[in-house]
Design a protein around this nucleic acid. Structure first.
Lengths: 331, 331
DNA sequence: ATATTATGTGCAACCGGTTGCATGTCAACG
DNA sequence: CGTTGACATGCAACCGGTTGCACATAATAT
């Protein structure tokens, strides 16, 4: 037995039934203090009886505010993002905002399209780890309030997770354990985080006179990490720092498949702490701040929406190394 | 230097600039075949020059269609959902629909609120693994087209992942390995999947004359799995089937912490295959169908939106056991 | 050449609320 | 007792598109 659906009740119908003007019905909901308490009560009672539900779209049209924001991420399924998304949702909820989610699939062009499609129906946009060029980002920012996560574009409010400090710590940690040849397993080239992590690793390695090289991958996936293993081993390295935990996990799997034991023969460090303690062995990693970043980006956007021109805010979240079980003294 | 934002260009401005009526501008975009090709081209050129962007909200108001759907899940961060969300997104994209994401935090009341807030601004809703009562679900379904995932409410189109068959296979597998006492680690009581899995395990165990018991948890989290371990061991079981992979992983961690080795001394089976091969040891689990479910639910909803009353469709997705490294012969 | 149909465009009403302003009522005040 | 204001409510314009219908012009039929 299929469900039957009834058409919407409008403000006019309520007004007529209650014997008042449409404006009064409207005010009963949006500005009750302008009406006498009796009238408000009466109108609401009638509305209730009729099953009236205010039409969000109509309201949005006349007020110009729709109470929606968009959140665009490169890959929902990358474990770094779900906690961020969740935190953003929660924060948006506190402001009575709803969230459109966009998934760019790590593709700049798709990101561009999503941005166009979504931005026309939201009050503001949060762009997490965008793969888009600065120019396109600025173009979109000129149309809609925008907050960036992990992308440093001057003039646009942004939340940056400074994984540089954590990666530097990780590099130092490896050096202290006696590793002399280390590899950085690179993530997406358009990623600000990747550039930041890579240079932090490179600079620290240089300071400590370690042999340093980079193995590249385009997409931060388990498979990419897995496939990087031959290159890594080919360079005679004894330790690797991966762009993120997922790639690190791929590296671990690749090493295991080749019979290289971790951490006895090889050390691996991840990034983002996205997997937490879910794995065995538990990954040594650089702490993420995805929850904080998600929450902060929303509250920042809300500020922008209120004061209009917040201008050029830039919040930096610190990170640090979390030593667990995938690093050890060099063999 | 903060970005400057310019106000929207309206259809009227374009009309005036192009020397035509507003309706013609509208038609140039929505019904070009009604105008002469020259006019269309001219209007679009002018619109382009002015930077005109059609107002989605206004269009939605007059057409009654907004091209949005809502997807509500209990927990974005539960690894079962991200692939589902992603697949749903992708499919929605094909239909030029945008997706609101809602996160109920495993809470029926929050789900109810989200549903109310969201349903007024979408054409249809997809409810994944709802924790809400049948009554409330039906109430909402009477207002908006709805598709359910993993919830069997007659009269509402739904996609069910039949993990029963997979769990039965898992139970049989354990019996064949010589296990006589097994435990089911239960998930949320309001979850249809949980009831289905539990009874599949119980029934199969009964058929095979195994000792069977249930350890309960309310939320399917790593911690819940971890905390279930004492109870599990207290029952002298040698194998456990967990509600999902995340809980299974918690169980593994708890066992490891107590020095119980897997799979030598104890066997563990998960559900959903949400973690894939990311873990070591690789979890024996029941295949999930989250991607297929996400995709199917959207295309089903699209059908409902077109033909209005599709009525009572019910798609069932099969599952099966995937044997990996966390099960073995009973000790 | 006139009657008929097809085609392209404009007019104006409408979608469902919101809001500035005008009006009406009644109490407090000088 | 007339005036002033505060307060409650209604009127009507507006948000930015869409769409049924009317009308003018051009193409076709008779």
């Amino acid at each position: 037995m299929p469900v039957e659906r009834k058409g919407g009740v409008t403000i006019s119908q309520v007004a007529e039934a209650a014997g008042v003007a449409r404006s009064s019905v409207s005010r009963a909901y949006t500005k009750p203090h302008m009406l006498s308490p009796d009238t408000v009560e009466h109108i609401k009672a009638v509305a209730e009886r009729l099953g009236y539900i205010p039409n969000h779209t109509a309201r949005a049209l006349s007020t110009g505010r729709n109470g929606n924001i968009a959140l665009i991420v490169p890959d929902v399924a990358n474990p770094f993002f779900p906690p961020l998304i969740r935190a953003a949702q929660g924060e948006a909820d506190r402001y009575d905002f709803c969230v459109f989610l966009g998934n760019s699939e790590e593709d700049a062009e798709k990101e561009d399209k999503l941005l166009s499609r979504l931005s026309s129906q939201v009050e503001g946009v949060i762009l997490a780890s965008p793969r888009l060029s600065d120019e396109r980002i600025l173009a979109h920012a000129s149309l809609k309030p925008m907050v960036l996560i992990n992308r440093n574009v001057e003039g646009i409010p942004r939340v940056l997770i400074d994984s540089g400090t954590g990666v530097a710590q990780a590099t130092r940690h490896l050096a202290e354990q006696g590793h002399r040849r280390i590899v950085y397993v690179s993530g997406p080239s358009a990623s600000w985080s990747n550039r930041q992590r890579r240079s932090a690793a490179r600079n620290t390695a240089a300071k400590l006179s370690l042999e340093f090289s980079v193995v590249s991958a385009s997409v931060p996936s388990f498979e990419a990490g897995l496939q990087a293993v031959p290159s890594i081993l080919g360079r005679k390295a004894t330790a690797a720092i991966a762009f993120d935990d997922v790639m690190a996990q791929g590296v671990l799997a690749g090493l295991a498949a080749r019979g290289v034991s971790v951490p006895e023969e090889f050390s691996v460090v991840g990034c983002d702490d996205a997997l937490g303690p879910l794995m065995v062995p538990v990954l040594t990693t650089v702490s993420g701040q995805s929850v904080e970043a998600g929450k902060l980006s929303v509250s920042l956007l809300m500020q922008v929406l209120q004061s209009d021109a917040l201008g050029d805010a830039c919040y930096v979240l610190e990170t640090h190394l979390i030593v667990r079980s995938t690093t050890n003294a060099a063999p």
